[in-house]
């Protein structure tokens, strides 16, 4: 089975990777989209004062 890896996917915000698997005829048999990036805002925003979050969460995406 032939495999086409697109790493990284470009011209968008964030990190992404696509794995495409081709069958014998060269048709797409299956494809997987992966996100190889995590920063954990869900965790480190905990414990921060609520009025500070407007200065932290904009850094989820700056584009």
């Amino acid at each position: 089975m032939r495999r086409v890896t697109i790493d990284p996917i470009t011209r968008l915000e964030g990190h992404g990777k696509i794995e495409i698997f081709l069958d014998e005829a060269g048709e797409v048999a299956n494809a997987y989209f992966q996100v190889p990036e995590l920063r954990g805002f869900e965790r480190f925003c905990e414990g921060r004062p609520v009025e500070e979050l407007p200065r932290i969460t904009p850094r989820i995406c700056g584009v």
């Binding site: 995590l38 920063r39 954990g40 869900e42 965790r43 480190f44 905990e46 414990g47 932290i56 850094r59």
Partner: peptide, 23 residues
């Protein structure tokens, strides 16, 4: 380290537990 560096308040398991479980 910036804002993503604030994640040093937790470790790998701490981040995963929150993100993929508790939210």
């Amino acid at each position: 380290g910036g804002i993503p560096g604030l994640a040093n308040v937790a470790d790998r398991e701490g981040v995963f537990a929150r993100v993929y479980g508790e939210t």
